[in-house]
Design a protein around this nucleic acid. Structure first.
Lengths: 276, 276
DNA sequence: AGCTTTTTGGAATATTTATTCCATTATGCA
DNA sequence: TGCATAATGGAATAAATATTCCAAAAAGCT
């Protein structure tokens, strides 16, 4: 390490974002031990706020002094200054969210507030788990396929229906030709499927017969089918050209749909902008 | 404080839940300064993991030694032991969730994965903010009103429609008589409103004319109207007997609906069980 | 291979932070 | 009102933690 690069002093990152930027920027040309620090910190930045130098150093498998040097190279005066940044940035997430949740639950099991707390929690967990498990490739494939389609046929019944209807609403707002197969009047819309179209089918266990049928139908005619479902083993997988799974956490017999809607929304917006 | 009560030693809470339980249990008969500690800690337990004794003591407006005593009364050997509990319990929420989000975003602005990350984030924020701002009284009132209604008329268009339709789905599953006013075929269902019924109206800015009209109509006939909307200044407030607001965070022009659905769901389930 | 420069580990030190102790003040009781 | 008991604040001490420094090892260069 030359004197020049230590001259980063005095320009400490002021936000977590700045920190990450600097981190990725300097990581490539760092000697072995310092690289270990950078890698470990990048993967566990959430623990900086609650750990000691010794603990982090042990995690990165380097002596404490190496971690110390690392902090200084990034621009901090030392570890404490870096930790301060993370301790302060730690508030915005949940100023006292968990406390509040607990209070809500104390209204007593079955009280509306307690129920709400449970659903909020389920929603949050679903979103987090979606972030962790989403298959980016499948998502990109789906976007690709749908943006090339003439008309997008969206189908979903029962609890998938709200998602389907929201999708169509968003497609409309973005001027993407889309059709909602909602089964109103028991009309069978399958003749609306035309060459060049694509189907976006949404269903969760217990899988809706109508949805599967429409997907199969589209498949038979050679149209691409994008499946939005809960497991890779879903019957929808057999008929779909791309399948995206959403890990939704239930509370009781009902699911929050948070993750499903977030996914549907990003799908729709991505398709909308790809088509412009 | 007698010697007996200090004898809590050796039975330190092993989980955050146990901690809270003990806290509420002992708070009532605590002298002034210790009570201050208990209150402050209860309201800010999320900051224990990242603060020093001095900081927390300053927050509670007591000398550090008082906070120290407080820790021991709860059963810990000292502050450090208490902090340890919170530092360890801090992981379960997001093993590396934020890291993951960041990676998703790095696919580039506009990429499907980046969009998804944004929507996930918006959903999470919405849920948290719902937890913090929900009006428990209004919620309880709404449940009360709806459980006494013969038939519940649910109305919501555009982006409120997915919520309305999900509500009706859940009501059906719970055998609650409910009717979705969806405007299919431009049919005007308002004659369906009968004495003893109630209306659950959902609308967000820009408020849908049809929804407001139906709410007004119900009001004129003396039926209770529950409003689910985005601000207390919503036009829906004028016609509603109870109004519940949902702080939904938008990303771009679209909203995640996570908070709205969580709220709707708990409303429906609470009503469903109240009617049994 | 021999010399120079960079990197490394760990022991020594400085600083911060937790914890205890006790003199003082307040409170409850006869 | 006076005595006993509990509560309090702050200064002194102990412990943990961060930080520096330097000798030794490794890497790069001629």
């Amino acid at each position: 390490m030359t004197d020049d690069s230590i001259a980063n002093h005095g320009s400490a990152p002021a936000t977590v974002d700045e920190f990450r930027e600097r981190l990725t920027q300097i990581t490539p040309d760092l000697p072995r031990r310092l690289r270990q620090c950078a890698d470990y910190i990048a993967a566990h930045s959430d623990r900086i706020a609650v750990s000691t130098v010794a603990e982090l150093a042990a995690g990165a498998d380097v002596p404490p002094s190496a971690l110390m040097r690392f902090c200084q190279i990034i621009g901090f005066s030392g570890f404490s200054e870096m930790q301060k940044l993370f301790r302060e940035a730690y508030a915005p997430g949940w100023p006292d969210y968990s406390t509040r949740l607990r209070n809500l639950k104390e209204g007593g099991a079955g009280s509306p507030a307690a129920l709400l707390a449970e659903f909020i929690e389920a929603g949050r967990l679903s979103l987090e788990s979606l972030a962790k498990t989403v298959d980016e490739t499948a998502l990109a494939d789906a976007v690709q396929t749908l943006s090339k389609a003439e008309t997008i046929h969206v189908v979903g019944f029962r609890r998938a229906f709200p998602v389907a209807s929201y999708l169509v609403y968003v497609f409309e707002k973005m001027s993407v030709p889309a059709m909602l197969h909602d089964g109103v009047g028991k009309l069978d819309h399958r003749f609306a499927l035309r060459p060049g179209d694509a189907v976006l089918a949404i269903t969760f266990a217990p899988y809706s017969e109508e949805t599967l049928t429409l997907a199969q139908d589209a498949r038979d005619r050679g149209l691409p089918v994008i499946g939005l479902t809960d497991r890779v083993t879903s019957p929808l997988a057999r008929t779909s050209s791309a399948i995206i799974t959403v890990p939704e956490v239930d509370f009781g017999a009902f699911r929050s749909l948070s993750a499903t809607i977030a996914l549907a929304l990003s799908l729709a917006v991505a398709v909308g902008s790809a088509r412009e």
